[in-house]
Amino acid sequence: MKRTGRTLSLGCLLLLLPLLASASGNSLLIPALGSCSLNTATEELPAALDACQQAALTGDVKAQFELGEFYYDGKRIERDLSQALQWFEQASLQGHAQSQYHLGMMFFRGEGVPANAVQAYIVLKMAAVNGSDEAMDSADLIAAQMPRNELEIASQVLGQIFRNYLLELQNADTLTSPFAPLP
């Protein structure tokens, strides 16, 4: 199931690529156990940042998220929206709901990218599917502001993503249906 969730997230972001062309104070840094913690003393920050980047480059989703937060927040280093976007995108491809939420809000606000409500809505809906309640609320607020034609485009893209996801589930090498009741 983990593979299909990752594919669902990847499919979402891959379908968004064409859209790209047209298109409070508390730190949220959460240390990733064993791989990366940027909540360190100032003198230890360069080494901690290097360790976190190494973990993120090997695919550690928690490290990718923490780096996204670190660069987005800009409290301990100059804010770098390009870096934040990069790390949130990497974690989003692995289905990380909070990264998808942040990415969607960056698309909506035009932070580091041109503002794009359609793209924001799609990514926020994916974050909601992956468990982010705040993404569901934000997607609903954005939908209320979107012109009907943009909402239709976003719904079509989401429909295609879910159709692809269901096809993948049907073609998976499993003996039982993914919708069958648990034993």
Results as ranks from 00 to 15, higher is better:
residue 75 K to L: 13
residue 30 I to F: 10
residue 4 T to P: 10
residue 54 Q to R: 05
residue 122 I to W: 01
residue 143 A to K: 05
residue 129 V to M: 14
residue 107 F to Y: 08
residue 57 L to H: 03
residue 152 E to S: 14
residue 99 S to T: 13
residue 64 Q to A: 07
residue 94 Q to P: 01
residue 153 I to Y: 14
residue 106 M to S: 06
residue 138 S to E: 02
residue 43 E to C: 03
residue 173 D to G: 06
residue 79 R to Y: 09
residue 23 A to Y: 00
residue 149 N to M: 06
residue 11 G to D: 15
residue 12 C to A: 14
residue 111 E to R: 01
residue 107 F to L: 01
residue 50 D to I: 14
residue 72 Y to I: 02
residue 60 D to Q: 11
residue 37 S to D: 15
residue 149 N to I: 09
residue 50 D to F: 15
residue 51 A to Q: 15
residue 8 L to N: 01
residue 7 T to C: 08
residue 41 A to C: 06
residue 101 Y to K: 00
residue 64 Q to F: 01
residue 68 G to E: 11
residue 110 G to P: 13
residue 61 V to N: 12
residue 25 G to R: 10
residue 15 L to D: 04
residue 70 F to I: 04
residue 20 L to N: 11
residue 24 S to M: 10
residue 66 E to T: 10
residue 78 E to W: 02
residue 153 I to N: 14
residue 172 A to S: 14
residue 169 L to P: 11
residue 74 G to D: 01
residue 55 A to S: 10
residue 84 A to C: 05
residue 139 A to F: 06
residue 83 Q to F: 03
residue 121 Y to W: 06
residue 116 N to P: 04
residue 150 E to Q: 10
residue 72 Y to C: 08
residue 55 A to R: 13
residue 141 L to Q: 12
residue 57 L to N: 03
residue 120 A to V: 01
residue 153 I to M: 15
residue 91 A to Y: 04
residue 39 N to S: 06
residue 91 A to K: 03
residue 125 K to D: 10
residue 157 V to Y: 08
residue 79 R to L: 09
residue 60 D to F: 03
residue 115 A to T: 05
residue 175 L to V: 07
residue 151 L to W: 07
residue 57 L to A: 06
residue 111 E to N: 07
residue 83 Q to P: 10
residue 131 G to N: 11
residue 179 F to H: 11
residue 161 I to V: 15
residue 99 S to C: 11
residue 97 A to P: 04
residue 145 Q to S: 11
residue 77 I to H: 05
residue 134 E to V: 02
residue 13 L to R: 04
residue 111 E to T: 00
residue 131 G to K: 09
residue 170 Q to D: 15
residue 81 L to T: 02
residue 63 A to C: 11
residue 25 G to S: 09
residue 32 A to W: 05
residue 159 G to H: 01
residue 139 A to M: 03
residue 97 A to H: 00
residue 114 P to I: 04
residue 117 A to F: 05
residue 47 A to L: 11
residue 115 A to M: 00
residue 6 R to I: 06
residue 21 A to D: 07
residue 148 R to F: 14
residue 182 L to R: 07
residue 40 T to W: 11
residue 129 V to P: 02
residue 8 L to F: 04
residue 105 M to Q: 12
residue 116 N to A: 08
residue 59 G to S: 09
residue 29 L to Q: 05
residue 58 T to K: 15
residue 182 L to Q: 11
residue 21 A to N: 03
residue 136 M to T: 12
residue 74 G to I: 03
residue 111 E to A: 04
residue 19 L to W: 12
residue 71 Y to V: 08
residue 135 A to C: 05
residue 113 V to C: 02
residue 159 G to D: 02
residue 51 A to W: 10
residue 123 V to P: 05
residue 22 S to D: 05
residue 25 G to F: 02
residue 87 W to K: 06
residue 101 Y to R: 00
residue 67 L to F: 13
residue 103 L to I: 03
residue 86 Q to M: 03
residue 113 V to P: 03
residue 33 L to H: 08
residue 137 D to N: 07
residue 147 P to E: 12
